[in-house]
Design a protein around this nucleic acid. Structure first.
Length: 520
RNA sequence: GGGCGCGUAGCUCAAUUGGCAGAGCAACUGACUCUUAAUCAGUAGGUUGUAGGUUCGAUUCCUACCGCGCUCACCA
């Protein structure tokens, strides 16, 4: 990995007749060009620019107008970054980019005058300029601005990625997302869609009377999920705190307090490996609704996600990795049914066998029937759940916060949502019996003592909150990053997180170079 | 953490069996007042990720390290 921006080449001290590398030459050229621009009377890093239109406004308003329809003159002032430059003697064309949209400008010496044309000749791809002029269509029919004035707004010192291929080095794309956003317009679209997904969820939940809250991210005890936490330290209190692995236990305290419909959209932190489906910090929607249960949440989830798909992509149908997903129709299986249904090869179990402790013991090395069932589900079924699917009825062992089924205390009223082979949501009827919750925590502590680092800790205040009485409640978490992956067709979570976690890069060495060039 | 793969000019990529490190774009000089991957003529740009090793000779083979990707394990 090497680029000018990331150059690790040692810096050579300048003395008298100095040898500059190409990179240094380029930077030096640009710095001296700033002086030429200033000599013409422009500021290299300009001031406020009053524009009359965004480029998107112009494309929307005039993109379909013919040359005749553009008369009388439509006068515009627009700003943007130069992404292409074509000089032709005493005239030239350039493309301005703003918010991912491009518009051509035509700069003719006769029209802009001597000084602005001198400026035009000094422009580099990547510079940010303001243009005033009128709209017209070129001979080839492209809507363009016939420039009459130019303003200089900001100088680029570094060269832009290659114009035809764009920026393809994934490492630079993630480390220098700003370059990725400049060079690859489709990347911007992914994050616009992500924003739409989040705002659709907010709008829908608010319409249903949910209140958005923020609960602690730094917690003295962590819980609400099975995961290893990050640890940090508060100096004044001299205590270690954990970055939360989930907001769950705090949100349910709010339900106890009478906030019967609450939700939070924010980051969780889990100290685990990275993969195309995992980033150590990730965004989760969690919501809690009093007086419903997991079945009510399935219906609500189907509605929420269906509407999100429509608002984010324009319809219920989504293409992902060659698969067709339909968010208007969710499949439903119990976990036992899923194991039976998706089993491949010999020994395919019946649904009854998939629930039989003897059969489970023979097919998995896990300690309990519930853990065995979960393992077999993950091995045989999970990756085949391409269509949006609810899998429900989970074993009690792996679900310490959810309520048992009245007719089968080995199972809990819980479901997870799968799509494209990924888990994107987890929901259950909340356990609101404090005595049973105490017993579950004690089971978790026993698991922890056997070496399970991810087992829950005892959260006595949470038990105390339940002891005041919590209404029957359904609660759910939806992974925003993974949902975004599915709705945007991104196969890596890194493509839906603006700044995914990477190892820190080596020395950049730009500052020392700039310091030396500043002395010249 | 394990396995596999990748790293060559600012960017995108070549380089035959181990034999002078190349092209396009970007940059620089010049020409050109409707181009759009503009065109034309010319110029410059490289410690081939880093450090060792084998060899007369290494971008190429070997070892270690750094970074990234894929994958397995773990997890959502």
């Amino acid at each position: 990995m090497k680029s000018f921006f990331l150059s690790s080449a040692p810096f050579h001290h300048f003395k008298g007749d100095i040898h500059l590398s190409l990179e240094d030459e380029l930077l030096k050229q640009r710095l001296s060009r700033i002086r030429e621009i200033e000599a013409l009377g422009y500021r290299a890093y300009g001031q406020r620019f009053e524009f009359t239109h965004t480029i998107a406004d112009i494309l929307a308003g005039y993109g379909s107008k013919t040359a005749e329809e553009l008369a009388p003159e439509v006068r515009v002032r627009v700003a943007g970054r130069l992404m292409a430059l074509r000089h032709m003697g005493k005239a030239g064309f350039a493309h301005l980019q703003q918010n991912g949209e491009r518009l051509q400008i035509y700069v003719k010496k006769d029209a802009v005058g001597e000084r602005d044309f001198q400026l035009f000749k000094l422009l580099d791809i990547g510079d940010i300029v303001g243009v005033e002029g009128y709209l017209f269509r070129t001979r080839t029919g492209e809507l363009s601005i016939h420039a009459e004035r130019l303003e200089f707004l900001s100088k680029t010192l570094l060269s832009m990625p290659e114009k035809w291929h764009g920026l393809e080095d994934v490492e630079i794309r993630y480390r220098q997302r700003y370059l990725d956003l400049i060079a690859n317009p489709e990347v911007r679209k992914v994050f616009v869609t992500r924003a739409r997904i989040v705002s659709s969820l907010r709008r829908q939940l608010e319409a249903k009377g949910f209140i958005e809250v923020e609960t602690p991210m730094m917690q003295p005890l962590y819980g609400g999920a099975a995961a290893r936490p990050f640890v940090t330290h508060h100096n004044t209190l001299d205590i270690d705190l954990y970055l939360r692995i989930a907001p769950e236990l705090y949100l349910k305290r709010l339900v106890v307090g009478g906030m019967e419909r609450v939700y939070e959209i924010n980051r969780n932190f889990r100290n685990e490996g990275l993969s195309k489906n995992h980033n150590p910090e990730f965004t989760m929607l969690e919501f809690y609704q009093a007086y419903t249960d997991f079945r009510g949440l399935m219906d609500l989830s189907e509605e929420l996600l269906g509407q999100v798909a429509v608002e984010a992509t324009g319809g219920h149908q989504v293409e992902f990795d060659g698969h067709h997903l339909d968010f208007s129709r969710f499949d439903r299986y119990t976990m036992r049914e899923a194991v039976s249904h998706f089993w491949e090869g010999d020994g395919k179990p019946t649904v009854e066998e998939a629930g039989d402790p003897e059969w489970l013991r023979r097919h998995s090395g896990r300690a309990t029937p519930g853990e065995a069932l979960t393992e077999l589900f993950e091995r045989h079924a999970e990756h085949k759940l391409i269509q949006p699917t609810f899998v429900y009825d989970y074993p009690v062992e792996t679900s310490p916060l959810s309520k048992q089924k009245p007719d089968d205390p080995t199972m809990v009223e819980r479901f997870e949502i799968f799509a494209a082979g990924m888990e994107i949501g987890n929901a259950f009827t909340e356990l609101n019996d404090p005595q049973e919750q105490r017993r579950r925590f004690e089971m978790q502590i026993a698991m922890r003592e056997r070496g399970d680092e991810e087992a829950h800790q005892m959260d006595e205040d949470y038990v105390r909150a339940l002891a005041y009485g919590m209404p029957p409640t359904g609660g759910e978490g939806i992974g925003i990053d993974r949902l975004t992956m599915i709705l945007t067709g991104c196969r890596s979570i890194r493509d839906v997180i603006l700044f995914p976690l990477l190892r820190p890069e080596g020395p950049i060495e730009l500052v020392s170079l700039m310091r030396e060039l500043d002395k010249l």
